[in-house]
Design a binder for these strands. Sequence first.
RNA 1: GCUGGAGUGGCGGAACAGGCAGACGCAACGGACUUAAAAUCCGUCGGGACUAAAAUCUCGUACCGGUUCGAUUCCGGUCUUCAGCACCA
Length: 808
Amino acid sequence: MNLPEIEKKWQKKWADTELYKFDKNSDKPKHYVLEMFSYPSGAKLHIGHWYNYSLSDSYARFRRMQGYNVFHPMGFDAFGLPAENYAIKTGIHPQDSTLSNIETMERQLKEMGASFDWDYEIKTCMPDYYKWTQWCFLQLYKKGLAYRQNAPVNWCPNCQTVLANEQVVDGRCERCGTEVVRKNLTQWFFKITDYADRLLEGLDRIDWPEKTKTMQKNWIGRSTGSEIKFKIKGGGEFSVFTTRADTLNGVSYVVFAPEHPLVDEITTDEYRQAVEDYKLFASKASEIDRLSVTREKTGTFTGAYAINPLNGEEVPIWISDYVLASYGTGAVMAVPAHDERDFEHAKKYGLPIKRVVKGKDGIDDTLPFCDYSGVICNSGEFDGLTVEEAKKAVTEKLAKTGDASFKVNYRLRDWLISRQRYWGAPIPMIHCPHCGVVPVPEDQLPVLLPYDVDFTPDGTSPLAKHEGFMNVKCPVCGHDAKRDPDTMDTFMCSSWYFLRYPDNKDDKMAWDPKIINKLLPVDKYIGGAEHACMHLLYARFFTKAFYDMGYLDFDEPFTSLVHQGTILGPDGEKMSKSRGNVVSPDTYISEYGSDAFRLYLAFGFSYVEGGPWSDGGIKSVAKYIDRVERLVDRIYKDHKEHFHDKNDIAKLDYSVNYAVKNVTKDIAVFQFNTAVARIMELTNNLYKYTESGKYDRDEAMSAVKTLLLLLSPFTPHFAEELWERIGEDYSIFNQKWPEVDESKLVLDEVEIPFQINGRLKERFKVSKDATKEDIEEYVRTNFSEYLDGKTIIKFIVVPSRIVNVVLK
RNA sequence: GCUGGAGUGGCGGAACAGGCAGACGCAACGGACUUAAAAUCCGUCGGGACUAAAAUCUCGUACCGGUUCGAUUCCGGUCUUCAGCACCA
């Protein structure tokens, strides 16, 4: 069959007849199938898009045929850095390149034959969308979840610009090679940490891959401990967070992150130069390097001393880059005897190491001793307590004087959303010299992103140079004021898009709760595992925040989640231009057709794993499609007299129902490769049933229809074509998904393997109802040659499964 | 480095609340059809030993060890590899 040709025909008919139009008023149960929308970067769909979208489409069609009212929208995550970089390089405006890319991708998605209803499309870079992204910002601000704070950015002193992590290669600017430093800017944050516990709790209520939940749990990183106050000799105080309050007596120094706000204040003149040098050194290291356990410990003394609140000892205050400003309080108490990193640091700089926990039996005297199983020593009144008891006792004692408290700490950090870039949604805030920071009134949204902006890097946010944009009247006092020159992180756009789809044309509100609460949460969300900790966490945070504000009546956005794997190049390596192993879908589509391409993606890989591309694979699938066509034609055109053999028909019935049962089960859990394998088996069995020419045509035609229905989600055009050819009504996608007749799957006999000492010896058939005793009896009678004269140690019978006899 | 995955024939991959390892397919090989090729159809197909052939035995799910009547599946350790690490999205 010439697939590329018939595909065009059906795509046109599907469009003309509005086959995929979503019916808002349907009384069928809803099913919201959503793929992570794509970033319109390159000009064309790559194989990863196909893998995600075409198979999710198969799933959506399957649910539709099962009788669900399927909502299956598509859109574009259109703001972002690559378009801006492309513009800096080529002079083509980000809006122009983005919209043109989107056009190409829309066309290609239609060529895929996907069942999207394009009436619900969204593009995040359009004012009718980002108006509401800005509205979301304002709601979070009103709820007290947005705040401004200093935070470091990567800064290239030569290009005079902020760099994304991606643009920093080996600590240097990717454009000019200059060493990158960190520089503090005042930026907007969302208090996602306020939701840390609820983000943890919600994980128990959703059907997500366990590994994704685990990653989110570890990312949030809840730990319980104590916050302990130290006084600084000569005035001032600071706090540390520790999970080991029990070791407070073993503190021999404290360490501040080099960025800690008190560092400048406490540093003595004698040490000032060393501290400044060290701060510069630390500003050049990446966070990953700083957290590395194997990185050589570095640091310097500030000249200041802190007072241990438990024993009054004076201990030196150091700065070192193994302490991060962003975690805990940005300061730690160092107990070298009981912490690996402190131990290394103390050894290198000759600081005292004082043991305060010993092994239970007092035998283990190697340091550092980081085990939680020990007992306290060298700590006066706390000696003899277990670690857990002492944590409590120490904290409680200090709590009386206000020097300590129990504290839950998270690894999760607040979400920094300011970007010093052009191609994003402007932050809807105004800075007034009289009123301070003032939100843009909601009826003045959107804050339009101006087109005529000079976005070449020169030290400020591109928007800051646009007078027309920046100058504004304060909405409170009416005086001259300035807009916020930054734009929002594009993760903002993708944190609520699933709420916009069903009500995408609403110009009165971001979403109409009446519509959204009916269609959401998303029933099946499909996208890459690389989003496990960021996008998927941010979207959950948004949903919970808007639930709290009463805009939603659910608080988890994605009931069920599936990750697709990665399709690699034919060489088994990740596809990349530099490796020259990029497989472009287009050439295959025009040669074999979209259906063959889709079927290969379904059959050739484990969906969640992905794997290497193979030209042979798609060829074999194209052959299989032709094989189905020959089979269908042969049976359909056959009008001769026929034979009715009960046995053969029972076998065919079994095969049909076996296929229906397993294909249904497998598609539901995204196991497309085994679903297709079962369809192939049915095809083979139907060949066998009909090859002699002596068969019942009605039975065969009924099996053919089932075969086409099962195949239709994978090869929609091909199935539609054959459905028409055998004289059935348009459209195959309006047919009901076949149901299993379990009675046809019941076999009277089951085959059971017989093992001696775990080694397979024989197989035998017994009635499906045979009891343990029946089976043992059968084995003793029929396989006596294995057992006679031997000592039976154990006779294991698992009915319908296995017999294993353990002989001496 | 930290966190989370993955490792099964020549290849893609099945199977796992612990019970016949290799479903389905590719490649390869043999055969049928054909003047021939392509296409199609049928058959064989993890390694080794022993066989004329079969039967049979044996090894085998990255590596080492453990639990169990029985481990690809559970536990401990090792190696390799992939993803994420907060400004790529």
